[in-house]
Design a binder for these strands. Sequence first.
DNA 1: ACCTGAACACCGTTCAAGT
DNA 2: ACCTGAACACCGTTCAAGT
Lengths: 244, 244
Amino acid sequence: MAVRTRQSQRRRQVLTRERIVETAVELLDTVGEGALTVRALTGRLATGPGAIYWHIGNMDELLEAATDAVVATALATQPAGRAEVTEAGAPQDEIRAVALGLFDAVTEHPWLATQLAVQLTRNPWGPVTLRIFESIGRPVRALGVPRGDWFATTSTLVHYILGATAQTSQSSGDGSETDRAEFLDTASRAWQDLDPDDYPFIRAIAGQMREHDDREQFRTGVDLVLTGITTLHPPTASRPPAPE
Amino acid sequence: MAVRTRQSQRRRQVLTRERIVETAVELLDTVGEGALTVRALTGRLATGPGAIYWHIGNMDELLEAATDAVVATALATQPAGRAEVTEAGAPQDEIRAVALGLFDAVTEHPWLATQLAVQLTRNPWGPVTLRIFESIGRPVRALGVPRGDWFATTSTLVHYILGATAQTSQSSGDGSETDRAEFLDTASRAWQDLDPDDYPFIRAIAGQMREHDDREQFRTGVDLVLTGITTLHPPTASRPPAPE
DNA sequence: ACCTGAACACCGTTCAAGT
DNA sequence: ACCTGAACACCGTTCAAGT
């Protein structure tokens, strides 16, 4: 009987902000975007709305926290977050790795595509964007880009990456191979039926569209931007790792 | 008797899909995103929800139509939608013009930033995306990019453009100069206070961030991608406009 | 300090009924 | 064919009350 008061917090499990964010990610992953409601949350966590709002300010804040959590893990999974540059081609590889890390995260968590875009527009310099800028900016610096161009160059890369991941097609279905093939086939056919006067270009690329691989095309895009960077800023031997 | 049925449509003004879309754009422009509700619409149009739903399928469809309408005008305002290529540098200029046209449209209609991003993710090959691809794809073709690379090259440009316009800062206030300066100042200061171990790069560019001009940086970004394209596909004299 | 749960003010959407 | 307007099923968020 004396135990009662002290132990009152043992409950089934303490409700923390972290646990709420975790559950939010779970809901988004399993039931999908739009299934993340305060009521769904209270159901899974066996509490009331008041409990949720004690830990988080509002729904937008929760969405941001969920996005940031997933992005953080995606970027941490990268080969080496803060590794020293050892060989000449390393910065490019690091940029490719970060980019693909984000791309794959979007594939794993389809809701992330929308959320990354929403964060970028509604919260341009929030934690999510900042984290991504930092991850891309470091290798950009290591690339030998002059200091005055760090910001613009990094922005270009980040904007491309986020634009591209935003479109990564979530072809309605369960994401199977056949689903995707069917989707591309229907789209490609629709493109060929467009008005030749209004959409000559789209009609012309309908074939390429059916054959294309999103991830491969994304790599190509990253490399295209990298080519632009190294063309504008040829790696002169002006940086430390230049002896020998 | 014969006239009656004909004239029945005079009412105070006929409710059409177009008029609904126009009103939606007005609401978005004046009161802002999130003020576009079916009830606000019925108020302005002096009808009931049923009337709205007779003309449009649902809210998402209306948002898409509103976005498409604004994008269409923005792209039509371009110097010459389907002009012949007369001089060598023209395709690049056309790409810059389309890009800036979209950028300026986002500045004029802040809600467009979110909607472009949302359309790209939720409706990757809907009318909005298609229109933008067509506008960028034509000059890409004129640039002399080999046929097999049309799709990937155009995608890269479009993804950069949409990623960049997505972030175009809508600094909460009314968009005045002082508002913006204040916003950049606060952000810049916040960046300098970040943990040096976690965010060395962000801290290093805090200064550039305060000074930067969104539109100018956007131009730089477009040119960077263009440099990548022309480096990978040097304009050989393989296309018609090559004499002299 | 942390949680409960009823209540509030709002949504988008439907649908029988009218003209 | 086109429109009315009440009604439905849902939201996010608040807040007095409990422990």
